[in-house]
């Protein structure tokens, strides 16, 4: 049993929490769109901030509160349709599949108190142990609600960090576009790997079919040879680049249509599952 008198007073913030406006919107939409409760994993980055430059002040005692040395930013989430899909009834974490390591999880329950429940606390411990990461685990609790005629939707949320065996409420900064958020852009580093590009074939050899396929996955109707030509020319041919960009957009459009179709099928299956679940619960 985790016991002990809690320290009086608020300790300085351990980490600076942030989430991009788009990621928060997607998360809240996921929670509000769910028919019941939902939960899922949060992904993002944790980075150590460089020490701030020494403040130039004549007064020693006028020191600002120490700035947090750790920054945790949420960039996205993943969630399955049924709640508690990545933990058992005792809150023990089961990794859904091989995926990048999460930085935490979220849980949405309608019309309940925004404090960690029995199972969420246990899941935070279990997930934190299985990740064994250097930064504290993040939990975002969401409580979406709507007025009876659905004219007003409210989203209450609160972030918690697992610190010394306790889930401590933490403030979550929302990062949007604008001059006020310039710091965030300066601190940005790309997370995605550099895309694969074909290398020049050995003289006398053509590009392999595998290489051609790989290019086809990115650009529609653009040969390996042409791509090689664009890469190779130092001046860069504007027309060729435009053509390649248009090809990429065509490819994206095609993918989007496929996703749309498969989403529809997923939705239909979801509806069938819901009917089955209703039957199981004895509600027709």
């Amino acid at each position: 049993m985790a016991l002990g008198d809690s320290a009086t007073g608020t300790p300085p913030p351990v980490a600076k929490l942030s989430i991009s406006g788009a990621a928060l919107a997607a998360l809240l939409h996921r929670c509000a769109a769910a028919a019941g409760d939902c939960d899922g994993l949060l992904f993002g980055r944790a980075a150590h901030l460089p020490a701030p430059p020494a403040a130039l002040s004549d007064y020693d005692d006028a020191a600002a509160p120490p700035a947090p040395a750790l920054s945790i930013s949420v960039s996205g989430h993943c969630s399955l349709s049924s709640p508690s899909s990545f933990s058992d009834s005792l809150g023990r974490f089961h990794a859904p599949s091989s995926s990048p390591a999460p930085i935490g999880f979220f849980s949405s329950r309608r019309r309940t108190a925004l404090r960690p429940s029995m199972r969420e606390t246990a899941l935070a411990y279990s997930l934190s142990e299985s990740l064994a990461s250097a930064h504290p685990l993040l939990l975002i609790l969401v409580s979406p609600s709507a007025s009876p005629n659905h004219s007003t939707h409210s989203y209450d949320y609160r972030a918690f960090l697992l610190l010394a065996g306790r889930l401590v409420p933490a403030s979550l900064a929302v990062v949007n576009v604008g001059p006020g958020f310039r710091d965030q852009y300066h601190a940005f580093t790309a997370d995605s790997p550099m895309p694969w590009l074909p290398s020049a074939p050995a003289p006398g050899h053509a590009h392999t079919i595998a290489e051609q396929k790989a290019v086809d996955e990115m650009v529609d109707g653009f040969g390996v040879g042409r791509l090689q030509g664009v890469l190779g020319s130092a001046a860069g041919q504007a027309a060729e680049m435009d053509e390649m960009y248009a090809g990429m957009l065509r490819k994206l459009g095609k993918l989007a249509r496929e996703v749309e179709k498969s989403n529809l099928r997923v939705l239909e299956q979801e509806k069938r599952n819901l009917v089955l679940r209703y039957k199981y619960a004895g509600m027709e």
Binding site: G36, S84, M118, Y280
Partner: peptide
Amino acid sequence: VYNALSPKVAPDVV
């Protein structure tokens, strides 16, 4: 806290 739409999930307690 039960989940009417996921009846198999055990209840949680706040």
